[in-house]
C-alpha cells in the first residue's frame, strides 16, 4: 500500500511547527501504524532526507498508553477501541492521505514533533490516585471480601492506561474520563474507600489547576478511549465529588485535634 503522510514537525517546545509531507510505498496491510512510521523514519535516515519523526511508544501491544497520535481528526485513528500501536494499515485505503498531529491541550505541551509531555497525568495521580498503606506480605485473596460486580467494575475502570486520548478528543481538553476511571476504580474497592473523600477532592483540584477543562457531557472521550472506559465513570466521579462536599458533616471534638 502507498500513502501520503502529512506529519506535524516541530523542533522543540517553542518552535512554531508546520506540516511536512512524506510518501511511503510498499507498506503491508498488516503493518501497524507505528511500524509504518518506523519504515518512514528508516528511509528518512538512510536517504539522509530529514531528522526522523519523533513519536512516543513503548509496549506496542496496547497496554502502556505511550503512543497517542491524532490521525485524520481522531485520537488513535480511524478504529474503535485500539491504541495507535494497535491500529493497522488495512484500516486505510491504498493511496490515502494521512494527517498526523500531536495531542493538543494546554496541559500536554508538545516536546518535539508528535511527542507531548503527559506528566500532568502523573501529577493528578500523585495528588491522590493511590492508597496509603505500607505494602507487606501478600494478603490472602479471601481476607477482604469484594462483591463480584464491584470487582468487575473496578477492573473495567482500572483498564485505563493513561494515554490521554480522552483529553485529546475533548473539545474542552477535559481529563474527566481519566480522573473518573482512576477515582471510580479505587472507590469501588474496600481498600480505596478509606481515603475516598480526600482522594477525589485532591485529584479534581489538581486536575483544575493543571489546565484541564470541565466536562460538558459531550462524550468524545468515551468514543475515542482505546480501553472503552464508560461515561458512567464520570458520573461516579461526580457522585464521589458530591459525597465529598457533604462528608465530615460535623466538627471533630476539639480536645484531640487542634483544628
Amino acid at each position: 500500500m502507498n500513502f501520503t503522510l502529512h506529519i506535524w514537525r516541530q523542533q522543540n517546545a517553542t518552535d512554531k511547527g508546520r506540516f511536512e509531507t512524506y510518501k511511503v510505498s510498499d507498506i503491508s496491510p498488516d503493518c501497524s501504524f507505528l511500524e509504518m512510521l518506523d519504515i518512514l523514519n528508516e528511509s528518512l535516515i538512510n536517504d539522509n532526507i530529514a531528522h526522523p519523526v519523533c513519536f512516543d511508544n513503548d509496549c506496542r501491544e496496547g497496554i502502556c498508553g505511550m503512543c497517542g497520535l491524532y490521525i485524520n481528526g481522531r485520537p488513535h485513528g480511524n478504529d474503535d477501541g485500539v491504541t495507535t500501536c494497535q491500529l493497522h494499515m488495512r484500516k486505510f485505503d491504498d493511496g490515502d492521505e494521512i494527517w498526523i498531529e500531536p495531542w493538543r491541550a494546554k496541559a500536554f505541551p508538545v516536546i518535539r514533533d508528535l511527542v507531548v509531555d503527559r506528566s500532568a497525568f502523573d501529577k493528578i495521580i500523585q495528588a491522590g490516585g493511590y492508597i496509603s498503606v505500607t505494602t507487606g506480605g501478600v494478603p490472602d485473596a479471601n481476607a477482604i471480601p469484594v462483591p463480584k460486580r464491584f470487582s468487575d467494575m473496578a477492573m473495567d475502570a482500572a483498564e485505563c492506561i493513561g494515554c490521554g486520548a480522552c483529553v485529546a478528543a475533548c473539545k474542552n481538553a477535559s481529563a474527566m474520563l481519566f480522573v473518573g476511571a482512576k477515582v471510580a476504580h479505587l472507590a469501588m474497592l474496600p481498600q480505596g474507600q478509606v481515603e475516598a473523600h480526600e482522594r477525589v477532592k485532591k485529584m479534581v483540584c489538581r486536575m483544575d489547576e493543571l489546565g484541564f477543562g470541565s466536562c460538558t457531557n459531550t462524550f468524545a472521550c468515551e468514543a475515542e478511549c482505546p480501553k472503552q472506559i464508560k461515561r458512567q465513570n464520570i458520573a461516579r466521579l461526580n457522585r464521589e465529588w458530591i459525597k465529598q462536599l457533604f462528608a465530615g458533616n460535623h466538627k471533630p471534638s476539639s480536645h484531640l485535634s487542634n483544628h
Partner: peptide, 16 residues
C-alpha cells in the same frame, strides 16, 4: 475557561 484549554488547535477537523 474551557475555550482556553487548547491554545493550539488541531489543523484537521474532528471526526469523533
Amino acid at each position: 475557561q474551557n475555550r482556553g484549554n487548547r491554545p493550539v488547535r488541531y489543523q484537521r477537523p474532528s471526526r469523533t
